[in-house]
Amino acid sequence: MPVLEVESLEYKYPTGVSALGGVSLAIEPGERVALLGPNGAGKSTLILHLNGILLCQQGEVRVDGDRVEKRNLAEVRRKVGLVFPNPDDQLFMATVAEDVAFGPRNMGLDEDEVDRRVGRALEAVGLPGFEERMPYHLSTGEKKRASIATVLVMEPDVMVLDEPAAGLDPRGRKGLIELLKGLPCALLVATHDLAMAREVCSRVLILDGGKLAADGPVDDVLADTELLLEHGLA
């Protein structure tokens, strides 16, 4: 059974402009999927639906076969983790440890378990010993890793990353790719970075004008220059 399913999802802004016009997709456990699309294609709006920040106006989102509704938000947010593009929006606590612990504490875990998980998550993103550092004094690359730790610590089944490579220098980007490849959960990576999509993912979705324009193996989709040009990706 897919871990995350979206079915005929539609979304209109309060102004009446359509952002998503019937999107359907499914992600299997452990799958690595890239979400490509030009600016304004609706990627961020789609992502906000995936763990119930926005609730569906039309269509539905299912996590583990369970429809996302107000009643199961806590459960959904544990299973689907979102990493936002700007780490300064994601890291809002005074220290890295407190920030990473924020999610597990909201889940109501006891403090020993929180400590264990925080240690493990920081280890996994390559920031061991950063517990007492302040988020606003980290480098961009370190902030990015810390952002991923804040979601990884909740042990999600799917991690959704919006523009994870934004603002990183080549070395930081390379480190991020290695980190993503090693993560244990399914991934949905929204990005403009085709090379990163090729390295990390096995499948590619192209979203344009609020509709899915392509869904296929990474090598096929990225080899189709005409398709990429048509959607402003090459």
């Binding site: 920040i53 947010r77 936002f84 929006d89 909201n106 889940m107 979601v151």
Partner: peptide, 14 residues
């Protein structure tokens, strides 16, 4: 920014 921070907090169960 406040909206994005709010989203990031809610996404982690705030």
């Amino acid at each position: 920014r406040a909206e994005r921070v709010g989203h990031a907090m809610e996404a982690r169960g705030f």
